[in-house]
């Protein structure tokens, strides 16, 4: 078993430039990253965040470094989240690609590797893949909501 790989795509009803802007916006990121209450920029494109991750009773607080990198405006960037807390760590690393499919539609493709370690990896295997996918789904849904109509 390696990292949980999560990929998918969705089409947003907005121009590529608009989508790009939202995806880069720290406020939008904060709203979209599950369990993220605050996001503080510590250096350009790098943020410190506190994440409350989990489902139902299984929850942990992670101190995370969120980094947006390798931007190729307006079509691609890399998102890295490295969180660690009492029960272990969660590392997310992936790429988001945008393609204009019309003047007001943009295809968003994403692929993330999710690596989990520590107690949660050792005792929570049965749930990890499902939970990771669920949270990524939440992230995408929330981003969609933040695209101005």
């Amino acid at each position: 078993m390696g990292p949980v790989v999560i990929n998918g795509q969705t089409t947003l009803n907005a121009a590529q430039e608009i989508v790009w802007k939202v995806l880069q916006d720290p406020d939008a990121l904060k709203n979209a990253i599950p369990g993220c209450d605050e996001l503080t920029e510590i250096e350009p494109d790098t943020y410190k965040a506190t994440l409350k991750l989990g489902v139902a009773a299984v929850r942990g607080t992670y101190v995370a470094r969120v980094q947006v990198a390798d931007q190729v405006a307006p079509s691609q960037y890399r998102l890295r989240i490295n969180g660690s807390g009492g029960t272990g760590f969660v590392d997310v690393d992936g790429t988001v690609r945008l393609t204009a499919t019309g003047s007001d539609t943009t295809a968003v493709e994403y692929e993330f590797d999710v690596n989990v370690g520590g107690t949660i990896a050792g005792v929570g295997q049965r749930m990890l893949s499902g939970v990771a996918k669920f949270m990524m789904g939440e992230f995408v849904k929330s981003m969609e909501k933040q695209i101005p109509k």
Partner: peptide, 21 residues
């Protein structure tokens, strides 16, 4: 907050620090 009934699922999670209500 979490509801504690029989505890047979919740308490293992508490013991492992996976649940921290």
């Amino acid at each position: 907050a979490k509801v504690l009934a029989g505890g047979q699922s919740l308490v293992p999670l508490l013991n492992m620090h996976l649940a921290r209500p």
